[in-house]
Computed example of a mutant assay.
Amino acid sequence: MKQTLNNHPEKKPHREIAALMESERPHLLRYACYRLGNADDAEDAVQDIFLQLHTKKQDAGGHPLANLRSYLYRSLSNFCTDRLRRRQTRQFVPIEQATHVSEEKAENFEQEFQLISTLLAGIPEEQAEVIRLRIHGNNSFSDIAAILDIPVTTAKSRFQYGIEKIRKGIKS
């Protein structure tokens, strides 16, 4: 008896990855774009992460990856962090000096990126990452908790504290 391509057991992970890529790609690109600062680097990052996911069908213990979506976002977050560490050329303005920037209307991505980067640079990285994943990655707090391997309540509190610090920085 001949198996069809759709029923072949080895093709199932590839179909799952393809479906995940199609559904998450816009959110991943937006997230990576706001992390890295431009669309070309974001496109490269997302492509690299999907390639890694495609070639890695199991975790380090030899088990199938349980949550592909969480693995994908965590990998992209790590990729962006590594890429930014290598650049080390950005100079951020303290949040107290960012009030004049927030009064300007962002006319294009570069201005918007600079504004958001400046505001996020004034809060702890763990809070900034939750805000990025929530706003740019379009993730729920339970998704963020899975991606960062933290409790849901911690994800929510990091988001809340980060937003409060940004608001206070803008008002002062």
Results as ranks from 00 to 15, higher is better:
27 H>G: 05
40 D>E: 13
20 L>Y: 07
98 A>M: 08
53 L>K: 00
37 G>A: 12
12 K>H: 09
47 Q>W: 09
29 L>D: 00
78 N>M: 05
94 P>F: 05
60 A>T: 12
83 R>V: 00
100 H>M: 06
74 R>Y: 01
45 A>W: 04
42 A>W: 03
84 L>R: 10
23 S>C: 06
46 V>H: 00
24 E>H: 04
41 D>I: 02
47 Q>P: 02
88 Q>F: 00
85 R>T: 12
44 D>L: 10
43 E>D: 10
59 D>M: 12
40 D>M: 09
60 A>M: 13
101 V>W: 09
36 L>W: 05
41 D>C: 03
91 Q>W: 06
22 E>Y: 07
29 L>Q: 01
67 N>F: 08
41 D>H: 07
76 L>K: 00
81 T>E: 03
97 Q>R: 08
45 A>I: 11
49 I>L: 04
74 R>G: 09
58 Q>W: 13
55 T>L: 14
100 H>W: 11
61 G>E: 07
70 S>M: 02
97 Q>S: 15
70 S>I: 01
49 I>A: 02
73 Y>M: 03
47 Q>K: 14
24 E>N: 04
58 Q>D: 08
99 T>V: 08
10 E>S: 15
20 L>S: 04
13 P>M: 09
96 E>T: 14
59 D>P: 01
68 L>K: 03
83 R>Q: 13
78 N>R: 15
63 H>R: 11
51 L>R: 13
31 Y>K: 07
96 E>P: 12
37 G>H: 01
84 L>A: 07
47 Q>R: 15
76 L>Q: 03
88 Q>A: 14
10 E>P: 03
95 I>E: 06
74 R>H: 11
50 F>R: 02
71 Y>I: 12
11 K>V: 11
100 H>P: 03
36 L>K: 05
54 H>E: 08
89 T>Q: 12
64 P>A: 13
86 R>M: 13
18 A>L: 15
91 Q>T: 15
94 P>C: 02
49 I>R: 01
95 I>L: 08
83 R>D: 07
32 A>E: 05
67 N>A: 11
79 F>C: 10
13 P>R: 05
46 V>C: 02
94 P>I: 06
78 N>K: 08
31 Y>N: 01
52 Q>N: 07
97 Q>M: 15
81 T>W: 14
96 E>L: 13
15 R>S: 08
13 P>F: 06
21 M>D: 04
73 Y>S: 03
87 R>Q: 14
35 R>T: 05
38 N>H: 01
32 A>F: 03
11 K>M: 10
52 Q>P: 05
31 Y>C: 05
98 A>Y: 01
85 R>E: 09
10 E>G: 11
23 S>A: 14
86 R>C: 10
48 D>A: 10
83 R>P: 00
81 T>R: 15
69 R>Y: 02
32 A>P: 02
27 H>C: 07
37 G>P: 00
60 A>I: 10
16 E>Y: 05
53 L>A: 02
96 E>K: 10
17 I>K: 01
39 A>N: 10
84 L>V: 06
31 Y>F: 15
44 D>F: 08
87 R>M: 15
91 Q>C: 09
